[in-house]
Simulated scan of single mutants.
Amino acid sequence: MTPAFAVPTIDITAFRTDADDTARAAVAAAIDTACREVGFMQIVGHGIPDDAIAGLTGALDEFFALPLEVKKRYRRSTSENRGYSPPRSESLSLSLGLPTANQMNDFYEAFIVGTQSADFPELDLPASSYAANNWPDAAPGFRPAIDTYFAHAQQLSRILLRAFTAALHLPADHFDTLTDHSIDALKMNNYALPEGELRLDGDMTGMGAHTDFGILTILWADRVPGLQVLDKHGHWHDVQPAEDALLINLGDAMARWTNDRWMSTIHRVDPPIINGHIRRRRSAAFFFDGNHDAVIEPLPGTLAPGEQGYPPITVAENITAKVAGLKGVATPAPTARETARVLAATPT
């Protein structure tokens, strides 16, 4: 029998307001439980206005409705994680070092924007981590709407980090110097393809099994089936956001910092396929990754005497290896724990 599984819903209003310590402690405890047992949660009371989310969805529709040849003008390079990715140009399972029968088999298309070196003129930041955005002038309403949503997501990510810090019983400012020029990125995904352009077959997936790379991810998604989460027992579970909720999951940086006390949960996307075509699904994942030069190593108190934790690695080194893998440029050294979990998972 498949074990019971649920993504908890947490109201984070206490960390957005002047709530008392008791209210904040209750939220922090709920977050700690979710991060230890599931690695995913959905939050309400997040404070992102309805009109900002409506602007986001309108921007997605405006850009992804463009002809493919127009969208390809904004194609991102293998060295810079900004711009457009056509269908079958990535395979996220490669970021775990997992083999695939058809190497570039993820059929979603995507557009990524993020923080740039120009956003921090006082710092000498590498373009490889803080590349310039390639805004699509063919979709004039896209940039203003995305700028608005991006700013709200940045603010929310820092509120969540305060809640995470409380949940880990760390000083409130512990992560401040690790995130004051954070690599933030918004990846907008579209799982609908024009009629006749591509017929899907059994060798393809929407988005392959993977973990996220940084501290946390804020996910807005249509309430359409597709997202699946791998539990600790090796079973896949369907997950859909509740009305007005945002899904939150942890990335590899936070799992490494906590020595896997908190889970960077493996997930994938497989929208329903009907007569060889898929039911349209949109999503937008905001990645809060931390400073490029922040060192990820176990936090104080997370290692037992004599226990060997993850070796130190910078945020940029981790992201670079995984992005290269998913683009097929290079396959990173697999993270044994993650790879073994996916290979042992019960098929659905």
Rank of each mutant, 00 (worst) to 15 (best):
H292L: 01
Y74A: 02
Q308G: 02
V224N: 05
F111R: 09
R282P: 02
I248M: 03
L326V: 01
D106K: 13
S128K: 13
P311D: 14
A166N: 12
G226K: 13
T346W: 09
R281L: 06
F63L: 07
G309H: 01
D238K: 08
A172D: 15
A167H: 09
V329I: 10
A340V: 04
R199N: 11
C35V: 00
G234H: 00
I273H: 11
A4P: 13
N81T: 01
H210E: 05
L216V: 10
I159H: 08
N249L: 00
P8I: 03
A255N: 05
A151M: 03
A4Y: 09
A344L: 09
H292M: 00
G301P: 13
A245S: 14
E109Y: 09
A324K: 12
D106N: 11
A285F: 01
Y310W: 15
S264H: 04
A138E: 15
S95L: 02
E317P: 11
V224S: 08
G301S: 11
I274G: 12
N133Y: 04
A330V: 06
A6S: 15
P311H: 13
F142G: 03
L92C: 11
I12M: 01
D244S: 06
A4C: 10
D222P: 02
T314Q: 11
T115P: 04
A14P: 14
H210K: 13
R337V: 03
G214F: 07
I31Q: 05
L303M: 09
T205R: 14
G208D: 01
G47D: 00
V7D: 07
Q155H: 14
D180R: 04
M188L: 14
A324E: 08
L198F: 11
T320K: 14
D124W: 09
T9L: 13
S93R: 15
S182G: 08
E195A: 15
V315C: 07
A65Q: 09
Y108N: 11
E37I: 00
T100H: 13
I159C: 15
Y108I: 02
V224Y: 07
A321W: 05
E307K: 07
H169A: 15
Y191W: 06
F288S: 02
N190C: 14
L161Y: 12
F64Y: 12
H235K: 03
Y74D: 05
T78W: 00
A336T: 13
N189V: 05
A345Y: 12
D106C: 11
P300F: 11
I218W: 02
D20Y: 10
G226Q: 10
L160T: 02
Y130W: 10
T165S: 13
P49T: 02
D244W: 00
H169N: 14
G45S: 08
R75C: 12
S89N: 10
P225W: 06
P136N: 03
H169G: 08
A344G: 13
H277G: 07
A28S: 12
G196N: 10
N189K: 05
I215G: 08
A209D: 10
A30F: 00
A284N: 07
D212G: 05
I146W: 08
E307L: 03
G83Y: 06
A132Q: 14
A172Y: 06
P140Y: 07
H210N: 10
A167M: 04
